[in-house]
């Protein structure tokens, strides 16, 4: 439990620091923050090992970190530095850490869905008991490529965990203006997949529910679609709060902010007697120094050499 809290806190404080420093205009790339959605990433990654794969979207910081991606690799990437996880070529929307099994996040909605299915296809062909988690939002289900990929994953009983973080919005457009009124899981049902919906802000519950399901995935019982209901606290893209735009009702904002994943977890730990002021301080201190160190490191890292421009067009072997 403590470990999950630590992981969520580390993501939260990292992204808060990104938001705080974004205005300095040194991180010159679009950033989509996951603040409010940390429990989903951490809960899903809990019972995955670095041998398992994960792919993600434009909003990938939390997934990358939860899966074990290097923190310095993330921050340096945002600053466009040579030691970023994609050597500065990618920026916030293109994170990768193969050592951690994080196979890549990209900026085209739905773009990594079939890629994740393909990773799982390779695992199946090679008889390796790996799972691929495909992290998507709610809007990705509107892309045809989701349906083609889900169909194939289901047909071949591939070890895929589709994770749809339903935060109700695509940019400024509510789900009800994009999809008919029916549960997202009905779509999974239509593709013959097992499916479940969970509170996306309850990290412990997600991890606990997934544990046996992940085992069944490894045993070849076919893909699972998981809807995690959650909410993004800040603007779609960028470091700010955009409540003033009025596209999200005040009551909705209040309800969801009250269900902050960190608060929920803290309450659960309090109930179990696992919380103390000393624990809180220990976590905050530890995370603070890690985050500061990562920023310090990134700021002092060099940009890629000019010769890196155009250096990665074709592989040679």
């Amino acid at each position: 439990m403590k470990d999950l809290y630590y992981k969520m806190l580390r993501i939260r404080r990292t992204e808060e620091e990104i938001a705080k420093r974004y205005g300095e205009q040194q991180m010159r790339c679009p950033v989509h923050l996951s603040i409010g959605q940390e429990a989903a990433a951490v809960g899903v990654a809990t019972h995955l090992s670095e041998k398992d794969f994960m792919v993600s979207t434009h909003r990938a910081h939390a997934h990358y970190l939860a899966k074990g991606g290097r923190l310095t690799g993330l921050i340096s990437e945002l600053y466009g530095k040579a030691d970023g996880c994609a050597k500065g070529q990618g920026g916030s929307m293109h994170l990768v850490d193969w050592k951690a099994g994080f196979a890549g996040s990209t900026s085209i909605v739905g773009g990594t869905i079939p890629v994740g299915v393909g990773l799982a296809f390779a695992s199946q062909l090679k008889r390796q008991p790996q799972i691929t988690a495909i992290c998507i939002g709610d809007a990705a289900l509107e892309e045809g490529v989701f349906h083609e990929s889900a169909n194939f994953a289901s047909l071949h009983k591939l070890p895929v965990l589709f994770v749809s973080e339903n935060n109700l919005y695509s940019c400024y457009t509510h789900l009800k203006d994009r999809q008919p009124a029916r549960p997202l899981t009905d779509i999974a049902h239509g593709h013959g997949m097992r499916h479940l919906t969970l509170d996306g802000n309850d990290c412990f519950a997600i991890a606990a529910e997934l544990k046996p399901l992940l085992t069944s995935l490894r045993q070849g019982e076919g893909p699972i679609f998981l809807e995690l209901q959650t909410y993004r606290h800040l603007e779609h893209c960028g470091p700010n709060n955009d409540d003033h735009l009025g596209y999200r009702p005040t009551a909705e904002l209040q309800t969801w902010r009250a269900q902050d994943p960190l608060l929920i977890t803290r309450k659960q730990m309090e109930n179990k007697g696992l919380w103390s002021a000393a624990f809180e301080k220990e976590m905050e201190d530890k995370v603070f120094s890690e985050v500061q160190e990562a920023f310090h490191h990134a700021l002092n890292s060099p940009f890629p050499e000019p010769s890196e421009l155009g250096a990665y067009i074709y592989a040679n072997h």
């Binding site: 466009g80 040579a82 500065g88 070529q89 890629p304 890196e308 421009l309 155009g310």
Partner: peptide, 16 residues
């Protein structure tokens, strides 16, 4: 443009 994609980092785009 040179015959490759634009990288993200502003450390390199200035020569793109």
């Amino acid at each position: 443009y040179p015959d490759f994609p634009s990288p993200s980092t502003h450390g390199l785009t200035k020569n793109y």
